[in-house]
């Protein structure tokens, strides 16, 4: 473990990952919707910082522009317009809570055990990767062309779905 922290990037990784996790926990555990949204922003920013550590500055910028800049602002706008400041009542039965908590603890323990056991065997930062915009574009429109096109179809379908779900029908009004 001491070897792990001797590299400055690893130290940074731990600090940023910790902050990101705290923010994410805030999203899950918080009560006020506005606080949740702000925590979500912190989580997005943390992920952006992780991209910087992974030597992908473009992804970091895109993350900030799209998630922190656009999506978070959209959420905040939505909150302002709908005035949703009520907190959700948490009426979950104790039995269910215990089941869920057990499942979460077991999964987390397994994952931590696995990660701890493999510490030092996996490279933290990939080396020799071409992270230039040219390479990214070529991958996106070349090798992943189909996935890219399918994703755009997915967005179209999601848009239609969102309208169907949210539009008020004439006879419902």
């Amino acid at each position: 473990m001491i070897d792990f922290f001797s590299q400055p990037t690893n130290l940074w990784f731990v600090v940023i990952a910790f902050l990101t996790l705290i923010a994410s926990l805030g999203v899950v555990a918080g009560e006020k919707v506005m606080h949740l949204a702000l925590n979500l922003g912190g989580s997005f920013a943390g992920v952006a910082a992780l991209f910087v550590l992974l030597q992908s500055p473009f992804l970091a910028i895109a993350q900030v522009l799209i998630y922190v800049g656009a999506i978070l602002v959209m959420i905040l706008f939505g909150l302002m317009l709908t005035g949703a400041h009520a907190t959700e009542p948490t009426g979950v039965e104790t039995g269910k809570k215990v089941t869920v908590a057990t499942a979460v603890i077991v999964l987390t323990a397994l994952t931590i055990w696995g990660v701890y056991g493999s510490a030092g065997r996996w490279p933290v930062v990939p080396s020799g990767l071409d992270t230039s915009l040219t390479a990214l574009g070529q991958a996106l429109y070349g090798h992943w062309g189909v996935a890219f096109e399918a994703a755009s179809t997915l967005l179209l379908a999601a848009l239609v779905g969102a309208i169907v779900v949210s539009r008020r029908e004439d006879d419902e009004a």
Binding site: A147, A150, A151, L154, A157, A158, G161
Partner: peptide
């Protein structure tokens, strides 16, 4: 994965 989501969302 994207194919699966394209099936699921609609």
């Amino acid at each position: 994965f994207i194919g699966m989501e394209l099936l699921s969302l609609p």
